[in-house]
Design a protein around this nucleic acid. Structure first.
Lengths: 210, 210
DNA sequence: GTCTATAGAGGGATAGAC
DNA sequence: GTCTATCCCTCTATAGAC
């Protein structure tokens, strides 16, 4: 990959993060990348295409970056902790806001939707694998739809990233309150056999409300 | 309020919802409202100001619309159900996407941030009241930071609204899986006194991880 | 209050020199 | 591959007729 291509991809991500989808023009991206504006079209054909490739590239890179940490997760508590770490790290640096901006843009520009979905799906799939593994021995296993929960968690983090941008303290407090809930989940997983059996029975008796 | 003002406020909301913050120009809003473009500036001074007022107006109206339903909630399950109803109704019609787009825009345009936050806060405060009431008799009460949880839930719904725009089926599945979790919460609330005492003890023993 | 017209900036995209 | 120059469009905002 040529240097210019790489600079443009990086410039696109920084522009998307700092100035939002509304501010991600060929000119502003080129300025951020330190290259000439016409090169956007020489290398990528259109701004949308550049955003698409930048988004895919970043998601691959970022998911990869946390790969070992995903593998190391052995409980729901640890998954929540990893989520917090990723939120804090990516919030300032990276990918969550970029994805959120792509989703925001995709509402109006259908061309952005497939790539935004593809990028988000990289995160979702990683979370699915972890959830599946972590729930294996949990009494919650049969009551959690793993693909659905992975999607809910991913969407929630996107919203939290946006919220963080306008109320950092509020987002911190939100995160802290969710972190506290993991104690509850952990307790359920750690209940003795008798209590677990009771819970299981009660859960089975209650029909899904969906 | 003059007819034109009302039309512009409505047009701004529809444009924000359908074409996103990137497509919410004075021209497109005026077209959606069926009025002349120059009237945006006559009545509101700037596009940002129009978006700000539209956002505040819509949040007031929408929160009001669900006011009775918020009051009628008596359990966490019912709160989840109401959340699903609001998501489904607002997703097509309304306010959640508008708010998400305002948040997306506020990242780049600081002038939008205060009004986006104010609008979102109307939802958050309503949820806080309900959470406070519903948790009163729950063993979870002392482990839930109500303001934090209300913010987390609100942010999560914003993310879900955006996600819905690019993957409706995925969002449905996410929602369904969360709906199923409410059974767990309900079961905890309905445990007998002995089991509740056990849970309380275990929860107290586990220190917050935040 | 509403319209037309337009100034002036910024945007996507291309042509053509180097 | 990179640059300058440019076309043409859309945008915000205003001036001025009605």
């Amino acid at each position: 990959m040529t240097d210019t291509r790489a600079r443009l991809l990086d410039g696109a991500l920084r522009t998307l993060r700092d100035r939002g989808i509304a501010g991600a023009s060929a000119r502003s991206i080129a300025t951020a990348a330190g290259v000439n504006q016409a090169l956007v079209f020489y290398h990528f054909g259109s701004v949308d295409q550049l955003l698409t490739e930048a988004c895919a590239h970043a998601a691959r890179e970022r998911v990869q970056l946390y790969s070992d940490q995903f593998d190391a997760v052995t409980s729901l508590s640890e998954l929540v902790e990893l989520g917090v770490r990723i939120h804090k790290h990516e919030g300032a640096e990276g990918n969550i806001l970029v994805l959120a901006q792509m989703l925001a843009g995709a509402q109006s520009e259908p061309k952005l939707a497939p790539s935004a979905l593809a990028a988000l799906t990289m995160w979702i799939e990683r979370i699915e694998v972890v959830l599946e593994r972590v729930l294996l021995r949990s009494p919650l296993r049969e009551f959690v739809d793993v693909p659905g929960m992975a999607r809910a968690l991913s969407a929630a983090f996107l919203g939290l990233g946006l919220y963080d941008g306008i109320d950092h303290d509020g987002a911190d407090r939100a995160l802290a309150s969710v972190t506290r809930l993991d104690v509850l989940i952990e307790v359920i997983d750690d209940l003795g056999p008798a209590a677990q059996a009771l819970l299981r029975t009660r859960l089975r008796r209650a029909p899904p409300t969906a």
